[in-house]
Simulated scan of single mutants.
Amino acid sequence: MRRFTDSEVLSGIVHEALGSETRVVGVDRLRGGSKKGVYRVHTSGSRTASVIVYSWAEAENFWPAAEAVDPAHPFAPASGLGPFLAAQRKLDGLGVRVPEVLLADDSRRRHPADVAVVEDVAGGTLEALLKTDPARASNAVSELAAMLDVMHQQHSQHYGRVDVLERGDRASGDSCEQLVLERAVDDLAEAAEREPGIGSAATSLHDRLQELAARVAPRAQHGLIHGELGPDHVLVDASGHPVLIDIEGLMFFDVEWEHVFLQLRFGDQYPALFHSGLDPARLDLYMLAMRLSLVAGPLRLLDGDFPHRTAMQEIAEHNAKEALALLDS
């Protein structure tokens, strides 16, 4: 049975971040995290009523262990205090709103894992706001579009996660499109074993991937992308401004990879985030690759004991249908 971070440990971490006069009056483990534990800690006697604590403990990671993964690979699991802090520094330096870091600790003195205490952005997710207050959400989406423009206009000749490039390492592979193709072929093989519809069309899907990849021309520069930016990874603060979270995967890559994910996750709101100049050939390849990833990934997560199983199964089934539909497009 998994043992999550307990209240006593969280209290010690919060005291260190906010001062010994702070009293912890409640702890909520927030739903949704699959690679780290996310806790809202309610306090009294401090300058803030609550904070968020991230715990990168092994027991908080629901993903099955991957075999022989190159940690510098852009698609390697992005988790841990190092990637988080590198991403936070980069985005904060660009003026892109992210939660303030109150404490970052990799000493393992209080807890046998890396932890961070960050600002609790009180306004909830953009995903929820789109349902409850569309007008206010529309303003936040417009601001998000401006933030993304700032990010995507940051250019690098090298692709890779920010923490990898920051320490002077190089990401593996020959090009973004080649990495996407290789991952898509692996995802297709994995999905074909688990999802009957994908299995019956595996040869056609493989041929389609190769055909789309052959249309992509080389590129020398890459933009800064979040990598998994849905409305659930955007908070809205008390003033209505968007705040990016789950930023560990921040990397320089083809911005088209970001845009296909934005299109899938924002749906009717996506036109407000679209900008001209995207490469249609990359969009076509990356859309099919993303669909296959969203079949294989959720099914892989279900190999373990991830608790929200129905939602993951629905994601896999929906994206399997959409991937097959792309064969006819």
Rank of each mutant, 00 (worst) to 15 (best):
F261T: 14
T203I: 13
P271T: 10
T22R: 03
L264E: 15
E119D: 00
P218A: 11
T125C: 00
L229I: 11
D305Q: 12
K321R: 09
Y270Q: 01
L179N: 04
E211Q: 14
R161F: 03
L10K: 06
A68M: 12
A104T: 00
L144E: 03
T22D: 01
A214M: 08
V295R: 02
H318G: 14
I247Q: 02
E177I: 02
D174L: 14
W63L: 04
A316K: 09
D120Y: 00
A137K: 03
E228T: 11
A86D: 07
R23E: 09
S11K: 08
A316D: 10
V185P: 05
A296E: 01
Q263F: 13
D133S: 15
D187C: 14
D120V: 01
D328V: 06
Q178A: 15
A320R: 08
R167C: 12
P74E: 01
Q153P: 02
T48R: 12
L30D: 07
A145R: 04
A214Q: 13
F4M: 15
V234F: 05
V53S: 05
L244Y: 12
L181K: 02
L91C: 09
A135G: 08
D174A: 15
G45Q: 11
R97Y: 06
R167P: 10
D114W: 00
A202H: 00
G267S: 10
D133F: 08
